[in-house]
Design a protein around this nucleic acid. Structure first.
Lengths: 334, 334
DNA sequence: ACCCCTTTTGCAACCGGTTGCAAAAATGCG
DNA sequence: CGCATTTTTGCAACCGGTTGCAAAAGGGGT
């Protein structure tokens, strides 16, 4: 079926090496030779077999793109950015869905069978064990949207969730609320833990403000709505920092359905600034996570590691910022 | 770095063929030999190189997953289902983003370089030329969410968009509206054309009902909102069939912001039944597209084609149905 | 123990490329 | 034009596996 290098060589009347060389750049080939080979190749419709060449060169240009976040709309954008960014650099993403995988070894084996040149773990909820397992197998790894650690064992690109918690707290304080709360995602997610920790730390410097927290059992609309409905039965806070935007929108719908007004009765601030947050019928005040920059930086880091596999692990943390929309009351004038 | 078959052979004191055979099933190996080899392999941490073996076997188990729909949330679910379904069958999805690719040849070349065993085109907006180009290159192709044609040149799995248009029209007629309209996605998308065609055909059997149509310039919230705002300036219809759910939600927000009530002043019916459609703050009446079944069937078809590449092309069309929620007034009692 | 048949094993060629090395061709220069 | 130097080319081995074939080993029956 497919045309091989040998056939091109025969047709052009040259050696196989000559053909090989015209298709690998940096090799020494005369112009005359190149023209002859290219002509034959064109006539035959030849294109080199990347997998065969990977055997000798040791590079497949395949990158494992590993994730378990297939329910959060921001990840569609993440996949879009990753696939395009990798393609632009001549790399090919091999998509791996870890949704119901628990054993890192299993995934490591699979990706090794395909000799991926590197692995991008794109997930805010996957335990760090997965990224480590890949690294231990000697594969360059970047953990995007991973947990910031002061002693990273693998390259991490993302945001400082603790700082985001603090930022949300400050934001609520500035607006003069005197009863605030954190409505987190699942307690087990590292992102939830960090956001809570930052939020509580900051609030502890404002002892006059009543502060509480609780968890939804998933980063989903339903979970956010359910938890908010539960909170509304008792004495709700005046403003909530929700674990992410999807959760916020669920909470928002609960508040509105209960006949309360946003932001007058209850304020809400989310996190992520997903596309939907700016839809006019949602108009969510939220903390912007610079997704595009995170992905771009992850790819650059990955590319750098392909040349320098033992690069010393670093954490690249991008600042977030509050995007003012309609779900929090304005800042108090001082 | 990686352990090779040869090293395992040496350690086990057997020939390389013996090792190869213990790892390819269906090969004849004695129990004693198998045990010896497996022991050595385990000790060395060997796992066979899938790419090297593909050279001789001619199968990579790589499937190109090609799409340009990275902005419609239903495609996140589509990717989730595809990746898991393919993985479960031992196949690996190589994700290709065709967002800004115009030349099919380019993509064909790329996928051939990686010797994919097959290609799944998962897109409702990609012109059929792409699927054809893959088929012409001799690669098994399934076009999921593609256009239904009575003379398909490649396997198509999806819905009958013309019938969906008719269904939407009937649905509006049943509710007694006497001025209805289609608010489509981009005119160039085949899905838009088909939905409009079905809608108008059905409406033509109800000459007493005023019928019109217009297009939004993308399948997006903003485009839907913009077009609806434009329509509201003049004499809007009583009910709109919107090109898809995202468009519907944009239109919905325009209607509400204009101080009109849904469904009392204006009714809306969407298409897709994406997860968000059932969120309480949206509660969109829409036509359900059986995504899960379409993906499952696509994968089954792909697997079948791997064994029988020249399989006669078929179209697998799944029925859709109206999901009654809150954006259309109830059916008139007769 | 012998013969015949079946199963298991190893050899060697091959899959589609790359690459070190030495020979051949081209080039520069006096 | 001849010689030294540089560039281009082909040979052959190799990357990590698979597989047809023939030889070796095993098994059963007498």
């Amino acid at each position: 079926m497919a045309v091989t290098l040998k056939e091109v060589a025969e047709r052009a009347g040259v050696s196989r090496s000559a053909v090989s060389r015209t298709f690998t750049n940096g090799a020494s080939v005369s112009d005359k030779m190149r023209r002859k080979v290219e002509k034959a190749a064109r006539e035959l419709g030849y294109s080199p077999n990347a997998l065969a060449s990977s055997l000798t060169t040791g590079r497949t240009k395949l990158i494992g793109l590993v994730s378990n976040n297939f329910h959060n709309p921001i990840f569609l954008q993440v996949f879009d950015l990753f696939t395009r960014g990798l393609q632009d650099r001549g790399l090919r993403p091999l998509l791996v869905n870890l949704t119901d995988e628990v054993d890192p070894e299993q995934s490591v084996r699979m990706l090794r069978q395909y000799s991926v040149d590197g692995v991008v773990v794109a997930s805010s909820t996957l335990p760090p064990g997965f990224a480590k397992a890949f690294r231990d197998a000697g594969v360059p790894v970047v953990h995007s949207f991973g947990r910031y650690s002061s002693a990273p064992q693998v390259h991490v690109v993302g945001i400082d969730n603790v700082e985001c918690g603090r930022m949300a707290a400050r934001c609520l304080v500035d607006r003069g609320y005197d009863h605030v709360a954190f409505l987190g995602g699942p307690e087990s997610a590292t992102s939830t833990q960090d956001r809570l920790s930052g939020f509580m730390t900051e609030m502890s410097t404002h002892p006059g403000i009543r502060t509480s927290f609780s968890y939804a059992d998933a980063y989903s609309f339903d979970a956010g709505r359910r938890e908010m409905l539960r909170l509304l039965k008792d004495t709700p806070a005046q403003a909530y920092f929700c674990g992410d935007d999807v959760l916020s929108i669920g909470a928002l719908s609960a508040v509105i359905d209960s006949g309360l007004a946003v932001p007058d009765d209850i304020g809400i601030i989310g996190l992520n600034d997903m596309e939907m947050a700016q839809w006019e019928n949602i108009n969510l005040t939220t903390i912007h996570q610079p997704i595009r920059q995170i992905v771009t930086s992850s790819i650059e880091l990955m590319v750098a590691m392909l040349d320098e596999p033992d690069r010393y692990p670093e954490a690249r943390i991008f600042p977030c910022s509050v995007v003012e929309r309609g779900t929090l009351r304005p800042v108090l004038k001082s």
